[in-house]
Amino acid sequence: MLSEFAFVGVLIVFASLLPIAGLGFAWLVRPKKPNPIKKSTYECGLETIGGTWVQFRAQYYIFALMFVVFDVEAVFLLPWAVAYDQLPAYALIEAVIFIAILALALVYAWRKDALRWS
């Protein structure tokens, strides 16, 4: 009894070999002349001041959070979609309720300006 993921396992092995082979070949072929100027951080030609950190913006986090919520919703809708033809008519109502509640979530986020980038 072979898992249907067996091929994926084999492909992972070969797919990992590709970048290793590419990088290995490049390592053999390319010049290696490091100097401190080359190895400094790129800042359009200027020197960096201070450590590398970014102003905390809740905005980025909210987008990721919206994504989690809608991703989970989509995951629950998938078994419904696969079984849809065999399900009775009220399955449509159930799913509409499900989607409506989550559309409500989207509307809430929209109205509360959570989706604004600026």
Binding site: L65, E73, F76, E94, I97, F98, I101, A105, Y108
Partner: peptide, 12 residues
Amino acid sequence: FEVISVLLLAAL
């Protein structure tokens, strides 16, 4: 199934 959507709404 329906309660899950309410849970997600509450979390968001």
